[in-house]
Design a protein around this nucleic acid. Structure first.
Lengths: 199, 199
DNA sequence: GTCTATACGCAGATAGAC
DNA sequence: GTCTATCTGCGTATAGAC
């Protein structure tokens, strides 16, 4: 309790050095991918020795995992908040536009997440990536006759893939109007899945 | 001309050893990604020494590049043939189902292409990946009022992303009915982009 | 916390004999 | 064509002094 540490930071909480290194790792991965985020390069950017970096983060693998999780958490938190503010019928659109918007505001985060599945192996880890979207779609359809389970899964999957593609294109070409693309995608979703006529 | 080589293989054409090694590389990348396709592992599977492998392929980078190009060419050739057989208005559906079907028949090819952009760096190399699809869509719309350039690009991009997601899901879960998913996607494409009413 | 020095493993590639 | 032996480079991690 009465350590010499300044108040406001619970005992055992991450130190500022560690936070700095994680932020640096996000930058490096965001710019040139996981392959280029090596111990030496992190140390160089932080103006520290390699040994010193390891002292704070334990191992390179741990550092990259922490960077990934921080980026993922930020995305989930922002998108989740936006979606919850909207009514059920507007949630698919809110989800799409918030997700696309998030990566437009945080370009570095794009690569950190898009390369994560390849880098961490773990294909199974990507399971249910679009499960939450599927639930949003089902709820938005409300009283309509329910979609077959498989078709709903495919719908969420396809929309998710389209989002990925829009985000990737924006990264490739910063002049690409991803906000407009998101609206266009939301229009299609609403007209095919949520329109009175059904499909 | 009168070398001792058996006829039927033009001078300077790739030797069978090289072909075998490329096929092996496709297997390795398909199973565990580019990261695991090392010189040592290729040599082991081919039951050759590392030096011998290099004698035939020049370098590991060249081998992986050749594997990638072979897989890409196979896909372009098959899908191209199917699309050309169809009439203009059926081509978007033919494209989608042929592409999804191709990867269902060649599961190893999936990873070789999906990880290619990350592995070879070269974000710009993926340019116009969906350009051909955009042209198919424009042609299928025929006499209808033309779509704005940007919207057509986004449509092709989104459809392409959805295809990627369907293919990836099939790889993750071999029980997933990707053929049905492809038809479902084609239905949406036709009803939103090609229906008489437009959107 | 920070450093220098060092060890270790692995992947890619070369040399040269057979 | 094929091998064994060897070299180089890089990335990770540890030891131990300050």
């Amino acid at each position: 309790m009465s350590t010499g540490r300044r108040a406001g930071r619970p005992a055992g909480a991450p130190q500022p050095r560690r936070e700095q290194l994680i932020a640096l790792a996000v930058e490096l991965v965001g710019e040139h991918g996981y392959g280029s985020a090596t111990l030496g390069r992190v140390a160089e950017r932080a103006d520290l020795s390699k040994a010193s970096v390891l002292h704070h983060v334990g191992s390179v693998a741990d550092l990259l995992r922490a960077a990934y999780e921080q980026v993922l958490d930020a995305m989930v938190e922002e998108v989740g908040a936006v979606v919850e503010e909207a009514g059920p019928s507007q949630r698919p659109r809110a989800y799409i536009t918030a997700l696309v918007g998030h990566f437009r505001e945080h370009p570095h985060h794009t690569r950190v997440l898009s390369e994560a599945i390849v880098h961490f192996g773990a294909v199974g880890e990507s399971r249910d990536r679009w499960g939450p979207l599927a639930e949003l779609l089902a709820a938005a359809r409300g009283a309509r006759e329910p979609m077959p389970e498989g078709d709903l899964r495919t719908a969420a999957l396809g929309i998710g893939g389209a989002i990925d593609a829009i985000v990737a294109e924006r990264q490739r070409d910063p002049g690409y109007d991803s906000a407009r693309a998101a609206e266009q995608l939301a229009d299609v979703v609403e007209s095919t899945l949520l329109s009175p006529a059904g499909r």
